Simulated scan of single mutants.
Amino acid sequence: MGRGYQLDLPCFPPQPVEEELNSALQAILPQRPVASFRNFENLFVELADETTVRSFVPDLLRIGRFHPLGLVITAPGRAHDFVSRYFVPGAGIPEDPVTGSIHATLVPYWSEKLGKTHLSAFQCSQRGGHLLCELAGDRVLITGRAKTFMKAEIYLPD
């Protein structure tokens, strides 16, 4: 992969999930999670393997009940350090194709788990995307390719 674009994001280390949310998460998953954690805007679940992440059929109505929280599922990857998928139906996003911001929590999680600061990630939505990630102190650097799909101008009030 060529250099591409790089995002420089604040690191949001994983936080514990409240027991009631943990129970609700388990009810929508195909198997018992390896781990669950959260940040300020999303719930994260580690599943056993990449195949389970790729084959997951989301119950968008149940996931939408977590509104405004999104749901990220992740697992160790075969060709990448980890894979993920991201669902936010409560905000009108059934599945986001490739999401930089979720990696501000996934990178510190997998960095600690795998004992390395440079990671290869793949978000395995239908479109999918490969990201090169680095944990750099309190920052997460994410490099990947991007395709322009929209151009717009935003006007702020005076």
Rank of each mutant, 00 (worst) to 15 (best):
R78F: 01
Q6F: 13
K147S: 12
E50F: 04
L60H: 13
D8N: 11
V140D: 06
S84M: 06
L61R: 15
E112R: 07
S36W: 03
N39Y: 10
R78E: 11
T143N: 05
R62S: 11
G90H: 00
H130L: 13
S36A: 14
S101T: 04
P33S: 15
V98A: 05
F12C: 12
P76S: 11
I73K: 03
S55M: 11
N42Y: 05
L119F: 01
Q26F: 04
P33H: 14
E41N: 07
R38F: 08
E19G: 00
N39P: 11
S101F: 03
S111M: 08
A48E: 08
P94G: 04
G129F: 09
Y155I: 06
L141C: 01
I73H: 07
L25R: 00
A75R: 02
L71V: 03
G128K: 07
P68N: 01
I63N: 02
G92N: 05
Q31C: 15
Y109G: 01
F149E: 12
S125Q: 02
I93F: 11
H103I: 09
F82E: 02
Y109T: 03
D49E: 04
G70L: 08
R32Y: 05
P30A: 15
V34I: 10
I102A: 09
I28Y: 05
D8S: 10
H103V: 05
G129N: 05
G64P: 00
P16K: 05
A75H: 02
G64N: 03
C124V: 03
E50L: 05
L119C: 02
G2S: 15
G92P: 03
T74G: 08
R65T: 08
F40K: 01
G92T: 07
G144H: 06
R32D: 10
P76I: 03
S120T: 07
D138K: 08
S125H: 01
A24M: 02
V83S: 09
D81G: 08
E46D: 12
M1A: 15
G100F: 07
G70T: 12
K113E: 14
G64T: 02
R38E: 15
K147C: 12
T148V: 09
E95A: 09
Y5H: 14
R78M: 07
V53H: 02
R62E: 06
F56W: 08
R78Q: 12
L7F: 04
E20P: 00
P58W: 01
C124F: 00
E50V: 06
T99N: 03
A24H: 00
A24W: 00
T143A: 14
G115L: 09
V34Y: 00
V88F: 11
H118A: 12
Y155N: 06
Q6I: 15
A48L: 10
P30S: 11
V34P: 00
V57D: 08
F56K: 01
L47M: 10
R3D: 13
E95M: 13
Q31I: 15
H103D: 04
P30M: 12
R38I: 06
T143P: 05
F56C: 05
P10Y: 09
Q126H: 13
S111Q: 06
L69A: 09
L43C: 04
L60F: 13
H67Y: 09
V72G: 01
E134T: 10
A136Q: 05
F12N: 09
P16E: 12
C124M: 01
R78T: 12
L135A: 11
P94A: 11
F44P: 02
S23E: 15
